[in-house]
């Protein structure tokens, strides 16, 4: 640095300022400070700086759809971790004598075919849905954004191959694929289902990630960092990823809802989760044949599923609106 003093002779004495600016700077500084709130330059230097993320957060907090769906999701996560908080019974202790009975005191949702308490099963069923949804989304998002991001950044033959591979995955009808792949698996945990959804879900997120990395890569600030001598890892992690991640978050949040309903679909078809795992899909499947006699058996798990899927999709919508720079 040169002596910072050698241009200060142009400076006019700023009123009560630090005396560290040329006249232009001081004028701009004043006009900046003259604008409380809003516009290009809100607040004075004392105000906490706002990043785009904190702007988005401020928007979200004011959005009632976001608040409602977030509350629903928090509630779901809590009961899937500690179902005993609101359900004292055991979802697997059933009494055939109560089969298909309606609502009775202490059993507000009634009983199912096996005489299990529907309320307890609906509460415990949240765990399977949330686990599958969250794990499958995380897996698909990580795999998709890493592969898609690298393909978008480097381009070339790797990108060409990856694009064709993801085209192939897109071509597989997801329910048919599930029937084929999962019917041969006997493992009764959630992991085969999670693995299958990740396998078929990542190309969608990969495509979004690739596109947004290509968009971010063309920005002048990436060129500027390259011109400074920044390596690929710095370009990707510091400049491209933070600017490309928003669409991936949005798509992943919406996908989470659809993955939950996909789990239920597969379980309904008998190839997803299998008893003794408690799942809304299994319960819906078992209840569907009795819909005329005992509709409560179907309505409660189906209602829980719908509310859950809706909550995640609305959350995704709200996040997209908040992160969309065009609306700012």
């Amino acid at each position: 640095m040169p002596e910072p003093d050698n241009h200060r002779d142009e400076a006019i004495e700023p009123a009560g300022g630090t005396g560290a600016s040329i006249n232009l700077a001081q004028d701009e500084a004043r006009s900046l400070e003259r604008r409380p709130g809003g516009g290009q330059a809100p607040g004075g230097p004392a105000e906490k700086p706002r990043s785009l993320w904190s702007d988005a957060w401020r928007d979200l907090r004011r959005n009632s759809i976001f608040v409602i769906s977030a509350l629903v999701i928090i509630f779901l996560v809590v009961i899937s971790l500690w179902p005993s908080l609101i359900a004292s019974g055991n979802p697997l202790s059933c009494n055939l004598g109560n089969s298909q009975k309606g609502s009775t005191p202490g059993h507000p949702f009634g009983f199912d075919n096996q005489g299990c308490d529907v309320y307890t099963r609906v509460v415990y069923g949240a765990r399977a849905s949330v686990t599958v949804g969250v794990c499958a989304t995380l897996g698909a998002a990580i795999l998709g954004s890493v592969l898609g991001g690298l393909a978008g950044f480097f381009g070339g033959w790797g990108d060409a191959i990856l694009s064709r591979v993801s085209d192939i995955f897109f071509g597989i009808p997801i329910v048919l694929g599930g029937l084929v792949f999962l019917s041969v698996i006997t493992n009764t945990t959630v992991w085969p289902v999670v693995g299958f959804i990740v396998l078929l879900g990542w190309p969608q997120i990969g495509r979004i990630a690739r596109g947004s990395v290509i968009t971010a890569r063309q920005n002048d600030y990436v060129q500027a960092a390259r011109a400074l001598g920044a390596g690929n890892s710095r370009l990707l992690l510091r400049h491209i990823a933070p600017n490309a991640v928003a669409p991936v978050i949005v798509v992943a949040t919406i996908a989470l809802g659809t993955y939950i309903s996909l789990e239920a679909t597969l379980s309904y078809l008998g190839v997803g989760l299998k008893p003794p795992t408690v799942s809304w899909g299994i319960d819906i499947s078992q209840a569907s044949s009795q819909i005329r006699n005992a509709p409560h058996m179907l309505l409660w798990p189906a209602g829980a599923l719908s509310v859950t899927v809706l909550a995640f999709i609305m959350l995704g919508d709200a996040v997209r609106d908040a992160l969309d720079p065009k609306l700012h």
Binding site: R35, Q40, A41
Partner: peptide, 18 residues
């Protein structure tokens, strides 16, 4: 010198005065 005014907060008097 300076910048065009923010239309949310146009200076009082003549807008060009600052």
């Amino acid at each position: 010198k300076g910048l065009p005014p923010n239309l949310l907060h146009i200076p009082p008097g003549c807008a060009f005065n600052p």
